[in-house]
């Protein structure tokens, strides 16, 4: 936003007043006030909300653990959704990403592949889940399919980018031995991209786990359904225990994927 001011200033003022920058801040403040009033924010509303928040937090404590069976079932289903969606999503994003890599593929192949990736990426998993719930009915399958689509969009894009960044010297060397195209992929491309690819896959597992706890809100199976029901019934103490377990599982998954990345470094 603010352009660096080189040696235009004299010696007395090493840091010249940046009028452009100040104007930008004024514009920012003006926008915040305008947009806030457009959305109907007001101080009264905020203050009354703080009061509500007190009640809300009070009803959340202590967290309720008596329905732990329901909680465990939902968590396990979320975990299954995340694992299956990551597995199939990553598996499918391999060919899609490869087809989208501009250094290995001709233009008429990369464009459709890039189109698929863009389409998969632009919708939030929840919206895709809504469509799949209509298509294949309520339950875990809709969630799995929705997250597979999301995974193709995300991993496919990153995978295509990392293939485009590989060194072509090794590709040429392998090609010079008379290797076939699959030979080139296995011996020249795969060793260069595998560590990064494992990184994307584990990242996607984390991300799918986060989203698999959500798709239940629209009927896609997993803990989200339990959470939303508890929320609508104002069982805020159960909501809190669900949230605690969800956050704990996501943190554990992050630690695990850190290990996996280290092993494949």
């Amino acid at each position: 936003m603010t352009a660096p001011t080189a040696d235009t200033a004299g010696h007395r003022q090493p840091f010249r007043t940046n009028w452009g920058g100040r104007l930008a801040y004024v514009a920012l403040v003006a926008y915040v006030i305008y947009a806030g009033s457009h959305l109907g924010f007001s101080w009264d509303r905020f203050v009354s909300g703080i009061g509500n928040g007190g009640h809300f937090v009070a009803r959340m404590f202590p967290p309720a653990w008596d329905r732990w069976g329901l909680l465990a079932d939902g968590m396990i289903e979320s975990l299954q959704i995340a694992i299956l969606a990551s597995f199939f999503g990553v598996l499918l994003s391999l060919p899609v990403g490869l087809l989208a890599a501009r250094n290995l593929m001709p233009v008429w192949v990369t464009w459709p592949a890039r189109g698929i990736i863009a389409l998969c990426r632009s919708f939030h998993p929840i919206i895709i889940a809504i469509l799949f719930v209509k298509a294949v009915g309520f339950g875990a399958l809709a969630g799995v399919l929705a997250l597979i689509v999301g995974s193709i969009g995300f991993v496919g894009k990153l995978f295509a980018e990392s293939i485009e960044e590989i060194s072509l010297k090794q590709v040429e060397a392998v090609r010079a031995t008379g290797a076939s195209f699959s030979g080139v992929l296995i011996m020249a491309v795969q060793p260069q991209v595998l560590p990064r690819f494992i990184g994307f896959a584990t990242y996607q597992l984390d991300s799918n786990l986060r989203n698999s706890t959500m798709v239940g809100i629209v009927g896609g199976g997993g803990i989200g359904a339990t959470l939303f029901t508890a929320y609508q019934r104002f069982d805020f103490d159960f909501v809190l225990s669900i949230l605690i377990v969800t956050v704990a599982m996501i943190m554990a998954a992050e630690v695990l994927s850190g290990w996996i990345r280290k092993t494949f470094q």
């Binding site: 959305l39 509303r45 809300f56 929320y231």
Partner: peptide, 8 residues
């Protein structure tokens, strides 16, 4: 739950 439905 805290601020009611809406953009806030």
């Amino acid at each position: 739950a805290v601020f009611g439905p809406g953009p806030l």
